[in-house]
Each structure stands twice: as structure tokens, then as C-alpha cells.
Design a protein around this nucleic acid. Sequence first.
DNA 1: AATAAATACTAATAAGCGTTAGTTTTGCAA
DNA 2: TTGCAAAACTAACGCTTATTAGTATTTATT
Lengths: 196, 196
Amino acid sequence: MAKIKTLANGSKKDVILKNASALFRKKGFKATSLRELAETMDIEAPSLYNHIDSKAALLEEICFGVAKDFTEYMNLIIGSKESAVDKLSKLIRFHIQKIYTDFDNVFVSNHEWKQLSKKQLVEFLIQRKAYENAFVEIINEGVKKKLFKTLHPQITVLTILSAVRGLEFLHSHKNEFSIEILEENMVQHLLTGIIK
Amino acid sequence: MAKIKTLANGSKKDVILKNASALFRKKGFKATSLRELAETMDIEAPSLYNHIDSKAALLEEICFGVAKDFTEYMNLIIGSKESAVDKLSKLIRFHIQKIYTDFDNVFVSNHEWKQLSKKQLVEFLIQRKAYENAFVEIINEGVKKKLFKTLHPQITVLTILSAVRGLEFLHSHKNEFSIEILEENMVQHLLTGIIK
DNA sequence: AATAAATACTAATAAGCGTTAGTTTTGCAA
DNA sequence: TTGCAAAACTAACGCTTATTAGTATTTATT
């Protein structure tokens, strides 16, 4: 009968969302039960329903929350007057920063979106495709202005997105490098390669 | 009461494994039921137990099968007398080829290993860490022989492994590029960058 | 054709799931 | 201190799950 302890700035639902995100990352969405989630707050599972609509709604909020963050930043970048190199560099850095600062949510969004309900899943994929297309456009811009080698833009984006998205493996190395060093290394690597 | 149709070369268990792999990739391990798996072969779920030990054992075989493939190739590379550049290049190509030719298994291994039972999970992580360490060693070798820039080896490996591992997104582009073009682009990108 | 082995079936079990209903407790406002 | 809304509780539902037991059927061998 313990009440959910709310943090300084955050409703009870926020606490649930945060704990759900952590569990979904560690165990997977399907492998996490509401009873288990409730336990992290010392309450019983049905009590959750005073704050949430359903288990599915939790995943929905997490996935679309992350999608929104990335889309908004992309729109910011697209609207700027920077060079394609700088745009790309900033996007890579943003991905790294998001993983550093919002690890659970980003991870869950990347791994569990398949468990979204049919309708949400379609919408999610549309947003992701749009993001990817915007990315490709930046590469195209760079190629046209002869800033980039003429590699295949879609493969380039695939490579970059895979590299930064896959930074979830970072978690085990998190204390070994500062985020600054990590950003520097990855941007260097993905833009200029590793061969002398 | 239909009997499982075995392919030209393959026991009934192999058919089950293959179908399981496909389903686990599409829906996730936890989200796939044995009834569903059985249905792909027009039999009832309990009949599966004439061929398999448990659902968990299926995942186990898939994950450790993939791990074995990568470990074996890594040992081959390590034992060779090639330059670090060639070793790295070959490893990257191997990853791409595996994803192309063994997509379901590689995907499931990358995504569902968390659902392994405690004991198997520990073993799996040990093997993965060993693989990663071998990768780092190759980078170190290249740096020592002044073939590579002095980027942080662990971050470099993280970047490369993330990039190739993340090629699962490839699935939606699979018909757009040949594997040769893909390999060329990615190796070029990851070794020499994209900036002119 | 008879026998044995492999492999399918049906029926059932125990456990766990998300969720609902109905009730009690808590904490704040008057 | 009383009253009301928020949020907790217990009990239970209906469903799905992996798996087992026991039995029938198919296939291969003699």
C-alpha cells in the first residue's frame, strides 16, 4: 500500500514510464509483466491502472516520444544553412548524445517497436522512413557539392545510422570513455575513415 | 495429421529450426508461440516435442550456431598472415555476407539473446566479449604498424561492429543493391571515410 | 502381412498474463 | 474534523502459454 514516490519534477505516470522503459530495455517488452513493473514501485499491478491505460500504451509513449525527438532535431538541421558535412556531423553527435542521456528510451524504441499494435506500427515506420529519407537528402546534397565521395547515398546512410543506432553496446563501455571522446572518434571515423 | 515435409537435405528438426528462426525474427521470441510455429508445418504444437526438447532449446541452437560461425571465421583470420587492413576488410565483408545469406539466424541471435536462460546467457556473453577483444587486437595491430589513425581502438570496433551488425535494416533494401556493391561501399566507408 | 519405431493426435495441466470489478485506505481541502 | 477525490488494495476473470500423458496413426523393416 506504499504510494508511488514521485520525483521532484514528475507526475506518477512519469515514474511508471521511466521504470517501464528500464525494464523493457533489460528484459524486453513481452518478457516484462505489469506485476513486475508494479513491484519496482512497491505497489500491486492493478494499481497501475489508476495512472495508465494499458501496457501497450506505455510502449507507444516510449517509441513515439523518441521518434519525436529525432524528427524535431532533423527538422532543425534541415532548416539550417550549414554545409552537408556539418549537418551530418551534428546528426551523428545528436544520436550519440541521445543514447547517452536517454539510453533506455532509445534502446526500447529501437528494439521493441515491432510489438506496437498494428496501427501504431504503421505510423512508426512511416516516421522512420521519413527520417531516413531526410538523411539521404543531406548525403545527396554533399555529393552534389562535391564534398563527399560518390558512394551510394542510401548505403552511406545505412552505414551511419547503423553505426550510431548500434551504440547500445556502449552501455558496457560507458564509463571507459567520455561522451566527448566518443563523439570525436565516431564523427572522425564515419566522415574520414580510419586509414592513413 | 500432416507430416512435416523435409527438404532435400535436412532433418525434420532442421525444418523446425528454420521456421522458428523466421518467426522469431518477424515477431520476437517471446511473442512467438509453439502453436504458431507448429502451424507453419501444419501440425499441432505438442507434436513438436517429438523433435525438440523445448522452446528455449530452439533459441539456444540459433544463438550459439551464429556465435560459432563468427568465432570460427575470426580464428581463421587471426591465424592468417595478412595485413590488419585486409583482416578488417575481410571481417566486415564476412558480416555482410552472413546477414545476406543467414539473415533470420543472425537477426535472432543479435536481438533475442537476452531471452536465453541465465546459464546460456552468461556463456553467450563470454563468447561475444572474446570476439570483440579479437577485433580490438586487429585494430591495435594496425595502429602499431602505422596503418591506422590513432583513434581509440575500442570505439573503432564499436563503430564497425555497430555498423555491420545494424545491417538488419538492409532487409527492406535488399533488392536495391547487390551484395558486391554493398560490400564495396561499406568497406570503403568504414576504412577510408566519405569525405574527399 | 506382421511388427516395431517414429510421429502424429487429443485432452489436460499448471502457471502466468493483462485487465476489470468492487472495496478500502490515504491524503488533501474545507 | 469531516468529506471527497485519488490511489491503493484483494479477488477474480478469461485467455494464452509451454509442456506432459496417453493414445492413435503412419512409415519403415522384416
